[in-house]
Design a protein around this nucleic acid. Structure first.
Lengths: 205, 205
DNA sequence: GGCATTACGCTACGAGTCGTAGCGAAAGCT
DNA sequence: AGCTTTCGCTACGACTCGTAGCGTAATGCC
Protein backbone atom coordinates (compact mmCIF):
# COMPACT_ATOMS: atom_id res chain seq x y z
CA UNK A 1 0.00 0.00 0.00
CA UNK A 2 2.58 2.58 1.05
CA UNK A 3 5.00 2.72 -1.88
CA UNK A 4 8.44 1.70 -0.72
CA UNK A 5 9.37 1.74 -4.36
CA UNK A 6 13.12 2.34 -4.71
CA UNK A 7 14.44 2.41 -1.16
CA UNK A 8 15.48 -0.44 1.13
CA UNK A 9 16.03 -3.44 -1.09
CA UNK A 10 18.01 -5.31 1.54
CA UNK A 11 16.74 -7.30 4.50
CA UNK A 12 13.71 -9.53 4.91
CA UNK A 13 10.85 -8.32 2.75
CA UNK A 14 7.45 -7.61 4.16
CA UNK A 15 4.95 -10.39 3.76
CA UNK A 16 2.45 -9.43 1.09
CA UNK A 17 0.13 -12.12 2.36
CA UNK A 18 0.06 -10.39 5.72
CA UNK A 19 -1.18 -7.20 4.10
CA UNK A 20 -4.12 -8.85 2.43
CA UNK A 21 -4.92 -10.87 5.54
CA UNK A 22 -4.87 -7.78 7.72
CA UNK A 23 -7.08 -5.77 5.40
CA UNK A 24 -9.54 -8.63 5.09
CA UNK A 25 -9.57 -9.06 8.86
CA UNK A 26 -10.20 -5.34 9.22
CA UNK A 27 -13.27 -5.51 7.02
CA UNK A 28 -14.47 -8.58 8.89
CA UNK A 29 -14.08 -6.77 12.19
CA UNK A 30 -15.90 -3.74 10.77
CA UNK A 31 -18.87 -5.93 9.93
CA UNK A 32 -18.99 -7.66 13.29
CA UNK A 33 -17.97 -4.87 15.62
CA UNK A 34 -18.28 -1.58 13.79
CA UNK A 35 -15.78 1.26 13.89
CA UNK A 36 -15.95 2.18 17.55
CA UNK A 37 -15.51 -1.32 18.96
CA UNK A 38 -12.86 -2.34 16.47
CA UNK A 39 -9.44 -2.66 18.11
CA UNK A 40 -6.11 -3.20 16.41
CA UNK A 41 -5.34 -6.04 18.75
CA UNK A 42 -8.45 -7.86 17.64
CA UNK A 43 -7.65 -7.30 13.98
CA UNK A 44 -4.16 -8.68 14.50
CA UNK A 45 -5.56 -11.82 16.09
CA UNK A 46 -8.05 -12.31 13.26
CA UNK A 47 -5.33 -11.87 10.67
CA UNK A 48 -3.00 -14.25 12.46
CA UNK A 49 -0.23 -11.68 12.89
CA UNK A 50 1.29 -9.97 15.89
CA UNK A 51 -0.06 -6.62 17.00
CA UNK A 52 3.37 -5.10 16.56
CA UNK A 53 3.35 -6.04 12.89
CA UNK A 54 0.23 -3.97 12.45
CA UNK A 55 1.79 -0.93 14.06
CA UNK A 56 4.87 -1.27 11.89
CA UNK A 57 2.77 -0.82 8.74
CA UNK A 58 -0.03 1.51 9.75
CA UNK A 59 0.10 4.57 11.95
CA UNK A 60 -3.27 3.88 13.54
CA UNK A 61 -6.85 2.78 13.17
CA UNK A 62 -7.94 5.48 10.72
CA UNK A 63 -5.18 4.71 8.23
CA UNK A 64 -5.81 0.98 8.43
CA UNK A 65 -9.55 1.27 7.93
CA UNK A 66 -9.01 3.76 5.12
CA UNK A 67 -6.97 1.22 3.19
CA UNK A 68 -9.37 -1.59 4.00
CA UNK A 69 -12.37 0.38 2.79
CA UNK A 70 -10.58 1.71 -0.27
CA UNK A 71 -10.29 -1.77 -1.71
CA UNK A 72 -14.08 -2.00 -1.77
CA UNK A 73 -14.17 0.66 -4.46
CA UNK A 74 -11.83 -1.22 -6.77
CA UNK A 75 -14.71 -2.88 -8.54
CA UNK A 76 -16.20 0.43 -9.67
CA UNK A 77 -16.22 0.81 -13.42
CA UNK A 78 -18.16 2.65 -16.08
CA UNK A 79 -19.63 0.36 -18.71
CA UNK A 80 -20.88 2.08 -21.86
CA UNK A 81 -24.65 1.85 -21.75
CA UNK A 82 -25.26 4.09 -24.72
CA UNK A 83 -26.53 7.26 -23.09
CA UNK A 84 -25.44 9.61 -20.36
CA UNK A 85 -28.54 8.86 -18.30
CA UNK A 86 -27.97 5.13 -18.50
CA UNK A 87 -24.29 5.53 -17.68
CA UNK A 88 -25.10 7.59 -14.61
CA UNK A 89 -27.74 5.16 -13.42
CA UNK A 90 -25.34 2.27 -13.82
CA UNK A 91 -22.45 3.74 -11.91
CA UNK A 92 -24.64 5.20 -9.18
CA UNK A 93 -26.20 1.79 -8.61
CA UNK A 94 -22.73 0.27 -8.31
CA UNK A 95 -21.72 2.97 -5.85
CA UNK A 96 -24.89 2.44 -3.84
CA UNK A 97 -24.33 -1.30 -3.71
CA UNK A 98 -20.90 -0.78 -2.18
CA UNK A 99 -22.16 1.75 0.34
CA UNK A 100 -24.91 -0.64 1.39
CA UNK A 101 -22.35 -3.11 2.68
CA UNK A 102 -21.88 -2.83 6.45
CA UNK A 103 -18.09 -2.62 6.31
CA UNK A 104 -18.37 0.45 4.06
CA UNK A 105 -21.12 2.07 6.09
CA UNK A 106 -19.39 1.93 9.44
CA UNK A 107 -15.90 2.52 8.14
CA UNK A 108 -16.18 5.25 5.55
CA UNK A 109 -17.97 7.89 7.54
CA UNK A 110 -15.81 7.34 10.60
CA UNK A 111 -12.64 7.80 8.60
CA UNK A 112 -13.99 10.94 6.98
CA UNK A 113 -14.93 12.23 10.41
CA UNK A 114 -11.39 11.67 11.63
CA UNK A 115 -9.96 13.36 8.56
CA UNK A 116 -11.49 16.68 9.57
CA UNK A 117 -8.65 17.07 12.09
CA UNK A 118 -5.90 15.21 10.22
CA UNK A 119 -4.60 16.57 6.94
CA UNK A 120 -2.48 13.52 6.18
CA UNK A 121 -5.48 11.27 6.58
CA UNK A 122 -7.56 13.52 4.36
CA UNK A 123 -4.92 13.27 1.67
CA UNK A 124 -4.82 9.50 2.05
CA UNK A 125 -8.58 9.33 1.57
CA UNK A 126 -8.35 11.58 -1.45
CA UNK A 127 -5.78 9.51 -3.27
CA UNK A 128 -7.04 6.07 -2.33
CA UNK A 129 -10.81 6.53 -2.41
CA UNK A 130 -11.99 9.82 -3.84
CA UNK A 131 -9.73 9.94 -6.86
CA UNK A 132 -10.88 6.54 -8.01
CA UNK A 133 -14.47 7.73 -7.99
CA UNK A 134 -13.60 11.02 -9.58
CA UNK A 135 -12.11 9.24 -12.58
CA UNK A 136 -15.53 7.81 -13.39
CA UNK A 137 -17.03 11.27 -13.47
CA UNK A 138 -14.34 12.50 -15.82
CA UNK A 139 -14.76 9.45 -18.01
CA UNK A 140 -18.55 9.71 -18.18
CA UNK A 141 -18.40 13.38 -18.90
CA UNK A 142 -15.96 12.95 -21.77
CA UNK A 143 -18.08 10.18 -23.19
CA UNK A 144 -21.22 12.30 -23.01
CA UNK A 145 -19.47 15.19 -24.70
CA UNK A 146 -18.31 12.99 -27.54
CA UNK A 147 -21.91 11.83 -27.93
CA UNK A 148 -23.07 15.44 -27.99
CA UNK A 149 -25.17 15.05 -24.86
CA UNK A 150 -23.16 17.63 -23.01
CA UNK A 151 -21.69 20.82 -24.42
CA UNK A 152 -17.89 20.92 -24.67
CA UNK A 153 -16.17 23.03 -22.06
CA UNK A 154 -13.36 25.11 -23.52
CA UNK A 155 -12.26 26.79 -20.30
CA UNK A 156 -10.20 24.25 -18.35
CA UNK A 157 -10.69 26.00 -15.04
CA UNK A 158 -14.45 26.11 -15.32
CA UNK A 159 -14.41 22.55 -16.55
CA UNK A 160 -12.63 21.42 -13.40
CA UNK A 161 -15.11 23.33 -11.30
CA UNK A 162 -18.00 21.63 -13.00
CA UNK A 163 -16.52 18.18 -12.53
CA UNK A 164 -15.96 18.88 -8.85
CA UNK A 165 -19.54 20.05 -8.54
CA UNK A 166 -20.99 17.00 -10.25
CA UNK A 167 -18.90 14.71 -8.14
CA UNK A 168 -20.01 16.29 -4.89
CA UNK A 169 -23.64 16.19 -5.97
CA UNK A 170 -23.61 12.56 -7.09
CA UNK A 171 -21.47 11.08 -4.33
CA UNK A 172 -23.01 13.31 -1.69
CA UNK A 173 -26.56 12.40 -2.62
CA UNK A 174 -25.92 8.68 -2.59
CA UNK A 175 -24.01 8.83 0.68
CA UNK A 176 -26.63 10.99 2.33
CA UNK A 177 -29.46 8.78 1.12
CA UNK A 178 -27.76 5.63 2.33
CA UNK A 179 -26.18 6.72 5.59
CA UNK A 180 -28.18 9.68 6.88
CA UNK A 181 -31.67 9.04 5.61
CA UNK A 182 -31.04 5.35 6.02
CA UNK A 183 -33.04 4.36 2.98
CA UNK A 184 -31.80 2.26 0.07
CA UNK A 185 -30.64 3.94 -3.12
CA UNK A 186 -32.58 1.47 -5.24
CA UNK A 187 -33.40 1.59 -8.94
CA UNK A 188 -36.44 3.78 -8.47
CA UNK A 189 -34.51 6.34 -6.47
CA UNK A 190 -31.60 6.32 -8.90
CA UNK A 191 -34.00 6.90 -11.80
CA UNK A 192 -35.53 9.90 -10.08
CA UNK A 193 -32.13 11.23 -9.10
CA UNK A 194 -30.72 10.95 -12.60
CA UNK A 195 -33.67 12.80 -14.07
CA UNK A 196 -33.24 15.67 -11.64
CA UNK A 197 -29.50 15.77 -12.22
CA UNK A 198 -29.86 15.97 -15.98
CA UNK A 199 -33.03 18.00 -16.36
CA UNK A 200 -33.31 19.89 -13.09
CA UNK A 201 -36.20 20.37 -10.72
CA UNK A 202 -38.16 22.77 -12.88
CA UNK A 203 -38.73 20.28 -15.66
CA UNK A 204 -40.09 17.52 -13.48
CA UNK A 205 -43.20 15.96 -14.94
CA UNK B 1 -33.46 17.30 26.13
CA UNK B 2 -35.04 13.94 26.93
CA UNK B 3 -38.65 14.80 27.69
CA UNK B 4 -39.41 13.86 31.28
CA UNK B 5 -42.69 15.66 30.73
CA UNK B 6 -45.29 14.13 33.05
CA UNK B 7 -43.36 11.67 35.18
CA UNK B 8 -41.40 12.24 38.38
CA UNK B 9 -42.51 15.62 39.66
CA UNK B 10 -41.15 15.00 43.13
CA UNK B 11 -37.62 15.26 44.41
CA UNK B 12 -34.84 17.62 43.48
CA UNK B 13 -35.19 18.78 39.88
CA UNK B 14 -32.36 18.48 37.41
CA UNK B 15 -30.35 21.60 36.95
CA UNK B 16 -31.22 23.16 33.61
CA UNK B 17 -28.05 25.21 33.83
CA UNK B 18 -26.05 22.01 33.93
CA UNK B 19 -27.56 20.89 30.64
CA UNK B 20 -26.58 24.04 28.80
CA UNK B 21 -23.15 24.06 30.42
CA UNK B 22 -22.53 20.43 29.44
CA UNK B 23 -23.62 20.93 25.84
CA UNK B 24 -21.51 24.06 25.53
CA UNK B 25 -18.55 22.26 27.05
CA UNK B 26 -19.06 19.42 24.59
CA UNK B 27 -18.85 21.78 21.64
CA UNK B 28 -15.79 23.43 23.13
CA UNK B 29 -14.13 20.04 23.52
CA UNK B 30 -15.07 19.13 19.96
CA UNK B 31 -13.28 22.21 18.71
CA UNK B 32 -10.14 21.67 20.77
CA UNK B 33 -9.88 17.89 20.74
CA UNK B 34 -12.13 16.54 18.01
CA UNK B 35 -14.39 13.53 18.28
CA UNK B 36 -11.85 10.80 18.91
CA UNK B 37 -9.95 12.53 21.72
CA UNK B 38 -13.04 13.88 23.40
CA UNK B 39 -13.70 12.12 26.72
CA UNK B 40 -16.75 12.43 28.93
CA UNK B 41 -14.54 13.02 31.91
CA UNK B 42 -12.99 16.02 30.23
CA UNK B 43 -16.37 17.41 29.24
CA UNK B 44 -17.58 17.07 32.82
CA UNK B 45 -14.56 19.01 34.08
CA UNK B 46 -15.08 21.77 31.53
CA UNK B 47 -18.76 22.04 32.42
CA UNK B 48 -18.02 22.13 36.13
CA UNK B 49 -20.10 19.06 36.90
CA UNK B 50 -19.27 15.58 38.11
CA UNK B 51 -18.72 12.82 35.61
CA UNK B 52 -21.52 10.81 37.16
CA UNK B 53 -23.99 13.61 36.42
CA UNK B 54 -23.16 13.27 32.76
CA UNK B 55 -23.80 9.56 32.75
CA UNK B 56 -27.13 10.05 34.51
CA UNK B 57 -28.40 12.17 31.59
CA UNK B 58 -26.77 10.69 28.51
CA UNK B 59 -26.16 7.11 27.62
CA UNK B 60 -22.79 7.78 26.04
CA UNK B 61 -20.63 9.95 23.85
CA UNK B 62 -22.68 9.64 20.65
CA UNK B 63 -25.92 10.77 22.30
CA UNK B 64 -24.22 13.68 24.01
CA UNK B 65 -22.49 14.93 20.87
CA UNK B 66 -25.69 14.46 18.89
CA UNK B 67 -27.53 16.85 21.19
CA UNK B 68 -24.63 19.28 21.28
CA UNK B 69 -24.40 19.41 17.49
CA UNK B 70 -28.15 19.57 17.01
CA UNK B 71 -28.28 22.96 18.70
CA UNK B 72 -26.03 24.35 15.99
CA UNK B 73 -28.83 23.90 13.47
CA UNK B 74 -31.34 25.92 15.48
CA UNK B 75 -30.42 29.08 13.66
CA UNK B 76 -31.41 27.69 10.25
CA UNK B 77 -34.33 29.54 8.70
CA UNK B 78 -35.72 30.26 5.27
CA UNK B 79 -36.11 33.97 4.55
CA UNK B 80 -38.23 34.85 1.55
CA UNK B 81 -35.83 36.13 -1.08
CA UNK B 82 -38.40 36.35 -3.84
CA UNK B 83 -37.42 33.41 -6.05
CA UNK B 84 -36.76 29.72 -5.63
CA UNK B 85 -33.17 30.08 -6.77
CA UNK B 86 -32.49 32.86 -4.29
CA UNK B 87 -34.19 30.92 -1.50
CA UNK B 88 -32.08 27.87 -2.20
CA UNK B 89 -28.88 29.87 -2.34
CA UNK B 90 -29.69 31.52 0.94
CA UNK B 91 -30.44 28.42 2.91
CA UNK B 92 -27.56 26.46 1.41
CA UNK B 93 -25.16 29.21 2.41
CA UNK B 94 -26.49 29.09 5.95
CA UNK B 95 -26.12 25.34 6.02
CA UNK B 96 -22.60 25.57 4.67
CA UNK B 97 -21.67 28.16 7.27
CA UNK B 98 -22.72 25.82 10.06
CA UNK B 99 -20.89 22.87 8.55
CA UNK B 100 -17.74 24.94 8.24
CA UNK B 101 -17.52 25.27 12.00
CA UNK B 102 -15.08 22.77 13.49
CA UNK B 103 -17.47 21.48 16.15
CA UNK B 104 -19.95 20.54 13.43
CA UNK B 105 -17.33 19.01 11.17
CA UNK B 106 -15.80 16.68 13.70
CA UNK B 107 -19.01 15.86 15.50
CA UNK B 108 -21.64 15.37 12.85
CA UNK B 109 -19.92 12.77 10.69
CA UNK B 110 -18.76 10.77 13.68
CA UNK B 111 -22.25 10.57 15.10
CA UNK B 112 -23.65 9.53 11.74
CA UNK B 113 -20.96 6.90 11.49
CA UNK B 114 -21.94 5.51 14.87
CA UNK B 115 -25.60 5.51 13.90
CA UNK B 116 -24.99 2.92 11.21
CA UNK B 117 -24.89 0.31 13.98
CA UNK B 118 -27.32 1.88 16.45
CA UNK B 119 -30.95 2.30 15.51
CA UNK B 120 -31.81 4.36 18.58
CA UNK B 121 -29.04 6.81 17.75
CA UNK B 122 -30.18 7.02 14.14
CA UNK B 123 -33.67 7.91 15.32
CA UNK B 124 -32.25 10.53 17.67
CA UNK B 125 -30.34 12.12 14.80
CA UNK B 126 -33.42 12.05 12.63
CA UNK B 127 -35.65 13.85 15.08
CA UNK B 128 -33.14 16.32 16.44
CA UNK B 129 -31.12 17.21 13.34
CA UNK B 130 -32.53 15.90 10.08
CA UNK B 131 -36.14 16.81 10.63
CA UNK B 132 -35.25 20.40 11.32
CA UNK B 133 -33.48 20.64 7.96
CA UNK B 134 -36.21 18.75 6.15
CA UNK B 135 -38.75 21.35 7.22
CA UNK B 136 -36.89 23.97 5.22
CA UNK B 137 -37.14 21.87 2.09
CA UNK B 138 -40.88 21.44 2.53
CA UNK B 139 -41.29 25.13 3.20
CA UNK B 140 -39.24 26.22 0.20
CA UNK B 141 -41.02 23.79 -2.06
CA UNK B 142 -44.47 24.97 -1.01
CA UNK B 143 -43.41 28.57 -1.49
CA UNK B 144 -42.08 27.85 -4.97
CA UNK B 145 -45.25 26.05 -5.93
CA UNK B 146 -47.39 28.96 -4.80
CA UNK B 147 -45.18 31.21 -6.93
CA UNK B 148 -45.67 28.89 -9.90
CA UNK B 149 -41.96 28.09 -10.14
CA UNK B 150 -42.56 24.41 -9.48
CA UNK B 151 -45.48 22.33 -10.73
CA UNK B 152 -47.96 21.19 -8.06
CA UNK B 153 -47.69 17.56 -7.05
CA UNK B 154 -51.11 15.93 -6.70
CA UNK B 155 -49.91 12.49 -5.69
CA UNK B 156 -48.90 12.68 -2.01
CA UNK B 157 -46.70 9.61 -2.19
CA UNK B 158 -44.71 10.86 -5.15
CA UNK B 159 -44.53 14.25 -3.49
CA UNK B 160 -42.92 12.75 -0.41
CA UNK B 161 -40.45 10.88 -2.61
CA UNK B 162 -39.49 14.06 -4.38
CA UNK B 163 -38.96 15.94 -1.14
CA UNK B 164 -36.76 13.14 0.16
CA UNK B 165 -34.77 13.20 -3.04
CA UNK B 166 -34.25 16.94 -2.98
CA UNK B 167 -33.18 16.82 0.62
CA UNK B 168 -30.59 14.13 0.04
CA UNK B 169 -29.23 15.96 -2.98
CA UNK B 170 -28.94 19.33 -1.28
CA UNK B 171 -27.70 18.22 2.10
CA UNK B 172 -25.52 15.50 0.62
CA UNK B 173 -23.83 17.83 -1.84
CA UNK B 174 -23.01 20.45 0.79
CA UNK B 175 -21.76 17.87 3.26
CA UNK B 176 -19.65 16.11 0.66
CA UNK B 177 -18.20 19.36 -0.60
CA UNK B 178 -17.31 20.54 2.88
CA UNK B 179 -16.17 17.36 4.57
CA UNK B 180 -14.95 14.99 1.85
CA UNK B 181 -13.64 17.31 -0.82
CA UNK B 182 -12.55 19.68 1.89
CA UNK B 183 -13.32 22.80 -0.11
CA UNK B 184 -15.55 25.65 1.00
CA UNK B 185 -19.14 25.82 -0.20
CA UNK B 186 -18.79 29.50 -1.00
CA UNK B 187 -21.08 31.79 -2.98
CA UNK B 188 -19.60 30.82 -6.32
CA UNK B 189 -20.09 27.10 -5.64
CA UNK B 190 -23.60 27.61 -4.31
CA UNK B 191 -24.50 29.57 -7.44
CA UNK B 192 -23.27 26.78 -9.69
CA UNK B 193 -24.99 24.16 -7.57
CA UNK B 194 -28.33 25.94 -7.59
CA UNK B 195 -28.25 26.27 -11.36
CA UNK B 196 -27.61 22.57 -11.82
CA UNK B 197 -30.28 21.66 -9.31
CA UNK B 198 -32.91 23.77 -11.00
CA UNK B 199 -31.97 23.42 -14.66
CA UNK B 200 -29.96 20.22 -14.80
CA UNK B 201 -26.63 19.41 -16.38
CA UNK B 202 -27.82 19.42 -19.97
CA UNK B 203 -28.79 23.06 -19.96
CA UNK B 204 -25.49 24.37 -18.66
CA UNK B 205 -24.27 27.35 -20.63
C1' DG C 1 28.90 -19.87 2.97
C1' DG C 2 28.96 -15.80 5.96
C1' DC C 3 27.36 -11.13 7.14
C1' DA C 4 24.46 -7.17 7.48
C1' DT C 5 19.85 -5.80 7.43
C1' DT C 6 15.15 -5.86 7.91
C1' DA C 7 10.67 -8.14 9.28
C1' DC C 8 8.34 -11.15 12.42
C1' DG C 9 6.15 -13.20 16.75
C1' DC C 10 5.94 -12.84 21.45
C1' DT C 11 5.75 -10.84 26.08
C1' DA C 12 5.37 -7.25 29.16
C1' DC C 13 4.58 -2.68 30.58
C1' DG C 14 2.83 2.29 32.08
C1' DA C 15 -0.63 5.30 30.82
C1' DG C 16 -5.09 6.45 30.04
C1' DT C 17 -10.22 5.79 29.61
C1' DC C 18 -14.35 3.50 30.57
C1' DG C 19 -18.69 2.99 33.13
C1' DT C 20 -20.32 2.00 37.80
C1' DA C 21 -20.91 1.78 42.89
C1' DG C 22 -21.28 3.91 47.20
C1' DC C 23 -21.59 7.71 50.17
C1' DG C 24 -23.11 12.14 52.35
C1' DA C 25 -25.04 16.57 51.26
C1' DA C 26 -28.26 19.64 48.75
C1' DA C 27 -32.70 21.07 46.80
C1' DG C 28 -37.02 20.65 45.71
C1' DC C 29 -42.38 19.05 46.92
C1' DT C 30 -46.36 18.08 50.24
C1' DA D 1 -40.93 18.44 59.46
C1' DG D 2 -40.37 14.07 55.97
C1' DC D 3 -39.78 12.17 51.44
C1' DT D 4 -37.65 11.95 47.03
C1' DT D 5 -34.42 12.78 43.61
C1' DT D 6 -30.18 14.90 42.13
C1' DC D 7 -25.46 16.28 42.87
C1' DG D 8 -20.39 16.04 43.84
C1' DC D 9 -16.89 13.20 45.14
C1' DT D 10 -13.90 9.12 45.47
C1' DA D 11 -12.57 4.75 44.25
C1' DC D 12 -12.58 0.73 41.60
C1' DG D 13 -11.86 -3.35 38.02
C1' DA D 14 -11.68 -3.93 33.22
C1' DC D 15 -10.13 -2.72 29.06
C1' DT D 16 -7.34 -0.62 25.21
C1' DC D 17 -3.53 1.87 23.80
C1' DG D 18 1.06 2.22 21.74
C1' DT D 19 5.85 0.95 22.68
C1' DA D 20 10.07 -1.53 24.15
C1' DG D 21 12.84 -5.47 24.23
C1' DC D 22 14.24 -9.90 22.78
C1' DG D 23 15.18 -13.92 19.99
C1' DT D 24 14.19 -15.79 15.43
C1' DA D 25 13.32 -15.91 10.34
C1' DA D 26 14.11 -14.36 5.63
C1' DT D 27 16.29 -11.87 2.22
C1' DG D 28 20.50 -9.31 -0.53
C1' DC D 29 25.43 -8.59 -0.93
C1' DC D 30 30.20 -10.08 -0.64
Amino acid sequence: MQSRTPASRTGRPRSAAADTAILAATREALVELGWSKLTLGDVATRAGVAKTTLYRRWAGKPELVCDAVAELFDELELPDRGSLAADIEGVVLQFAAILARPEAKSGLMAVVAESTRDDALRERIRTSIVERQMRLVLQGRARAQSRGELPPEPDPEESARTVDLIFDVVAGAVVHRTLVSGKPADEEWVRDFTRVLLLGLTSSA
